[in-house]
Write a protein that binds this DNA or RNA. Structure first.
Lengths: 116, 116
DNA sequence: TTTTTAGTTAGCCATCTGGCTAACATTCAT
DNA sequence: ATGAATGTTAGCCAGATGGCTAACTAAAAA
């Protein structure tokens, strides 16, 4: 599935740093590599992974490859998270309503003898 | 880092399914296992991974272990995503402003002779 | 046309991952 | 006190991951 790859791609600090860099605009492979001590081929692997997850696109012109962020991929997992949040918040709402109900019932029973 | 483990935990469909289930409320290991064909020990590994990422907490009472979602961990990556989104949207805003500026300049130059 | 720059390919390695089975431990029901 | 239910531990395995070096290609610069 798509989500597997996007979450997987973001589970590595190097790749997150690349994504963060690309948030600020396009960059060549060389520019992306500069901040890291890593050998180029290692960094290239990360870029490949980012590409195959759909988070990054790249195009080579001349001898330089420019990479850019594909924000839709990030939107995909934002959407997944939002969906989960909605589910758990609905549950918490129901829970809260239930507690409110209990409170009211307790109040209206305050005068009656204990049933225990 | 924390983000590594949370993103990593969510990069597996089985674990996302567990998280989705827990969004709807607590569940025992057995309950969590039911929907899957997987052997129990395999599923336990997933639960361990979810626990060590902070996405899930569990407590054993008697012979049953109840698992619950730790929504703060999800909030962590929501926050990371929101931060990135802010950066790239600011960039796009600047870009748009720049384009607007260009348009205006072009308009105010419409009567003048071509400089080329 | 040589040299430099910018990537790329190939292949090695240690470790991690996600699955399995088999055997054990503990608690609850009979 | 047995037996069934619910996890848990240990250990095996194939394949993926994240790093490396060395050698190669193609474009630009000198």
């Amino acid at each position: 599935m798509q989500l597997d790859n996007v979450f997987g791609a973001l589970s590595d600090a190097t790749r997150r740093a690349i994504v963060m860099r690309l948030c600020e605009g396009e960059a060549s492979v060389g520019e992306l590599a500069k901040p890291f001590e890593m050998a180029l081929p290692s960094l290239m692997k990360h870029i490949r992974i980012l590409e195959s997850s759909g988070l990054v696109a790249s195009e080579k012109t001349g001898r330089v490859r420019m990479c850019s962020l594909q924000t839709e991929a990030l939107a995909t997992i934002e959407a997944w998270l939002a969906a989960q949040r909605e589910i758990w918040e609905q549950r918490l709402d129901r829970l809260e309503m239930y507690v409110e109900k209990l409170k009211k019932e307790e109040k209206s029973n305050a005068h009656k003898p204990k049933s225990k």
